[in-house]
Design a binder for these strands. Structure first.
Length: 505
RNA sequence: GGGCCGUUAGCUCAGUCGGUAGAGCAGUUGGCUUUUAACCAAUUGGUCGUUGGUUCGAAUCCAACACGGCCCA
């Protein structure tokens, strides 16, 4: 019942009650009469995986001879007659619990056992007639009662919304989901090992910043009470990591969360994980080589093969990636005869008209060119491709190309029509950087909310001399999507952002 | 922001032409007790997402809203 003035969350929880939960609460009450219902003095001797490794290959007779006793613990996942399947963090082990051979009080306890309960059990290791490794249970104990029933045993939990909102249930019943997050963890661990082995140092820079910088994106805004100061959640760690190269840390990386106040989609979550690394005395070509090597090694580590299948496409990470300039990619995928259309602002505007691009004629030429790329080309780039020569107007932190000052020594890696990485030779000329910041401020003042602020301290840092360097960011969520064949970023985030559910009174 | 689709028992899903709600699993009771989505018999369980409209009558038709999915921008 929803009492007037009751906490809405409590009201929702109360409404969530049903007969199945009530029955289990009654069982819990009965247990509370007998003893502590949530003991924490049970200790197990074996995990399911350890038992499988030690005894899985043994013959039934040999096991009988051994008569090895052990103790396990885990969640009840199946009950088939006298058989109870227990799952622990390592895998599954079957228990044999015949209520006719158990002592009377345990037979009573067995009646109260439900799917989802967490129990400890001990007994002799044996193999059933069908050859399944099992434990002939002589003693068992309920360790934690499940008051809520598990989803259906065969189909698991398939409602997408509930899988995201109640990930703990998804993880209990859907092995494929568990595997995705195990793989994510392996990938992140591997990346750290990879950079550590190359002599990079992992660092942590501010996530709360007084000036958001390092990317063109809308930030989340918050407030620091004691300082009475406006603060921003970082959109990128870039400017702090580059300050560290000024300080003399020549190879640094950070693998952590960024926050961008933008829409949600199958490839965007407001908080997402990014790897950024900065490498002194290297240039963007070195980054591309490293990126190819990293992706190949991740593929072999995770998939045991450089061939990765993703959503119907197949990528061979043993091969070097294609390399194509922004302009070249537009020419190729829009079937343009020559590059004359890119000569000046007027001709670019004319081309945007011809291609039916949505744009603002007041935008600088390079920004219109990027709109062409994003609206007409990016999604078509399936196979791994480095797109290079990004316009200087959309690359305010990247080093200018020495042959063509309109573009930067920058690349993005596109796979499956998605941006996976973005890297460039760093702009370490403080006077050029100050100029670029001023251009960003002008764009911000003309209404571009994503344009950057002028970061005077960053300019001061560059004035102390930053070594020539190259730096790159790799989107970890999208990378995990690629290596787990996941269609949505929500499938690789344990707790993706969701709109709150509304309760109707 | 726009388009399309979805929302029915704890879970997975049916629901015909608008005529008063169904299955499997889970649960309960009993049987069986070396099974593999165990099996056999009986049985409980529903604000049909929310609000409003049309109608003698709405899970079903219409509208708005909420949440989710896919596609587009």
């Amino acid at each position: 019942m929803t009492a007037r003035g009751q906490d809405p969350d409590q009201a929702a929880a109360a409404l969530d009650e049903n007969k199945l939960i009530a029955q289990r609460r009654d069982k819990l009450q009965a247990i509370r009469q007998l003893r502590h219902a949530y003991p924490n003095d049970f200790r197990r001797q074996s995990t399911a995986a350890e038992l499988a490794a030690a005894y899985g290959d043994q013959e039934s007779d040999a096991l009988q001879q051994l008569a090895q006793q052990t103790t396990v613990a885990g969640r009840v996942m199946r009950m088939r007659g006298p058989f109870v399947v227990l799952r622990d963090g390592s895998g599954q082990i079957q228990l044999y619990m015949n209520n006719k051979s158990l002592p009377e009080e345990l037979a009573e306890e067995l009646k109260r056992l439900d799917l989802g309960d967490i129990v400890g059990a001990s007994g002799e290791i044996f193999k059933t007639r069908t050859g399944e490794l099992s434990l002939r249970v002589s003693r068992f104990q309920l360790l934690s009662k499940a008051l809520r029933p598990l989803p259906e045993k065969f189909h698991g939990l398939s409602d997408t919304e509930q899988r995201y909102r109640q990930r703990y249930v998804d993880l209990i019943v859907n092995e494929s989901s568990r595997r995705v997050f195990e793989t994510r963890s392996r990938i992140v661990r591997f990346i750290r090992q990879y950079f550590d082995a190359l002599g990079f140092m992992e660092v942590e820079t501010p996530m709360m910043q007084t000036l958001p910088g390092g990317a063109t994106a809308r930030p989340f805004v918050t407030h620091h009470n004691a300082l009475d100061q406006r603060m921003y959640l970082r959109v990128a760690p870039e400017l702090f990591l580059k300050r560290l190269t000024v300080g003399g840390f020549e190879k640094v990386y950070e693998l952590n969360r960024n926050f961008r106040n933008e829409g949600l989609s199958t490839r965007h979550n407001p908080e997402f994980t990014m790897l950024e690394f900065y490498w002194a005395y290297a240039a963007y070509g070195d980054l591309m080589d490293l990126t190819e090597d990293l992706f190949r090694r991740i593929a072999i580590e995770i998939a045991d093969s450089a061939l990765v299948n993703y959503q119907g496409s197949s990528y061979d990470f043993s091969q070097p990636f294609a390399r194509l300039s922004v302009q070249g990619a537009i020419e190729k995928h829009c079937n343009l005869a020559d590059g004359d259309q890119f000569a000046d602002h007027d001709s670019v505007v004319a081309l945007a008209q011809t291609l039916g691009i949505q744009y603002n004629p007041a935008w600088p030429k390079g920004k219109i060119v990027m709109e062409m790329f994003e609206q007409r080309v990016e999604a078509k780039l399936d196979q791994p491709t480095f797109i290079t020569e990004y316009p200087v107007e959309v690359s305010p932190l990247a080093r200018r190309n020495e042959q063509n000052p309109e573009v930067t020594d920058r690349f993005e890696l596109i796979i499956g029509g998605r941006e996976l990485a973005n890297g460039f030779s760093e702009l370490n000329d403080p006077e050029d950087q100050a100029e670029r910041f001023r251009a960003q401020v002008a764009q911000k003042e003309s209404g571009d909310e994503e344009a950057m602020h002028y970061d005077a301290d960053y300019i001061r840092a560059l004035e102390y001399a930053m070594p020539p360097a190259a730096g790159e960011g790799i989107g970890i969520d999208r990378l995990v999507m690629l290596f787990t064949d996941s269609a949505s970023i929500r499938d690789v985030l344990l707790f993706p952002h969701m709109r709150p559910q509304q309760d109707h009174d």
